[in-house]
Nucleic acid binder design. Structure first.
Lengths: 219, 219
DNA sequence: TAGATTGTTAATCGATTAACAATC
DNA sequence: TAGATTGTTAATCGATTAACAATC
């Protein structure tokens, strides 16, 4: 029986995974939880906890064998390529189509859709742009599982419904709205303004506490 | 004394805030925690908890007055415009410069920097591109507080150090690397591949549990 | 008044950290 | 062996949820 690994653990493991790739390329053979902690900014206990949810990989006194740890993560994280489709080929959509980081991670954008006829038929970084009406058919044919919403706010809910009808199981949503979808469809919101504003709050709060009477360690 | 509001609360409040703007525009006068819950997908208890950290705004039996709630959030969240600078005017950087959602939220990109001479001097969506060497001077002159890293992985650590030297207090990092910066500089990582992969994990896990013997409610 | 909805407390849940026995 | 580092347990911390008294 597969133990279920929490979402937070997953996202940390993906960071470890990248570091291990670098380490392997540099010819490094072993790595300790303390080193991984140093390189990611997490605690060493956190690293060991995360790793241990994948089994007993390390050895006391030795640490982890880079190749072993790499293999453990690869196995559980991504076996085969994920097929993704993009909705909305505007500025952001085009940039996503040209994003260089997906190939190495087995993420492949297999088609793009737009409502604007002038964009349909184009090809960007090897990905063809289709009319949005073709989405349901193509999603099935290309076995896509995840959809990206890079359309404007006003179009987003309708596009989300198209995605659900097409059978996509997950949505990466770049529009700053809450999409209304069935509970079995997963949504990840990437909301630029919220990131900026929450970062700004951190800055302001740190300013206050630093200037204030109460002393606090910088996180 | 200002109670410190957690980062998670902040990001939810920003969602409420947008809904309130829409509601106000539609002429809606009152709104309940249950309605806000429905529109955001959070629980009603969560909504009330979040709101209560800003004081007693609502009234039993009545709910919240839209205008009042709006005002409370505005006051604590953003008083004045935040000045932001962008590093790296490639595909992603250009798309960010053209992102339409910032203006309404009092986020202004005041300058962009690139190492590539062919990009320097251009203007994108009203924002001038400067040589990266000019960053320290311009950051101070334009009173920028936050920097965006949209440069490739290989350049990112060096760019981060430039940002720190320039006096920026926060970094929105789009590169899939851990930036090494002093503890008093805040970093928000927006990592596309990690979002995809962790979403994919959710999908796979849901598939397993749904097909398996153990029954679980869809989240 | 009766009914509905807030504000808040207490209970629950989950995630992180500390600590240390196991062990190579 | 002595020393170092894992795996894991228990303690802590924080965030969410449930529940209900206050109250308009």
């Amino acid at each position: 029986m597969k133990k279920s690994v929490s979402q937070k653990t997953i996202s940390r493991v993906l960071r470890y995974s990248r570091i291990l790739n670098d380490a392997a390329r540099d010819g490094k053979l072993r790595i300790s939880s303390a080193e991984l902690a140093e390189l990611t900014g997490f605690s060493d206990a956190q690293v060991r906890k995360d790793v241990s949810s994948f089994g007993k990989v390390g050895r006391p006194r030795i640490g982890y064998i880079v190749a072993d740890l790499k293999k453990v993560f690869e196995g559980l994280v991504l076996q085969s390529t994920v097929h993704v489709v993009l909705f909305g080929v505007g500025n952001l959509g085009s940039a996503i189509l040209r994003y260089p980081g997906f190939d190495q991670e087995k993420i492949r954008i297999v088609a793009a859709f737009d409502r604007d006829k002038s964009r349909v038929g184009r090809e960007i970084n090897g990905v063809r742009v289709y009319d949005i009406a073709e989405a349901p058919g193509l999603v099935k044919r290309l076995r896509a599982q995840i959809g990206i919403n890079a359309t404007p706010v006003v179009a987003s809910q309708e596009v989300a419904e198209t995605m659900v009808r097409a059978g996509l199981q997950g949505i990466i949503n770049f529009a700053p709205v809450t999409l209304n979808v069935p509970a079995d469809v997963f949504v990840r919101n990437i909301d630029f303004t919220i990131e900026f504003l929450s970062l700004f709050c951190d800055i302001q709060n740190s300013g206050k506490t630093a200037a204030g009477s109460r002393h606090r360690k910088a996180a």
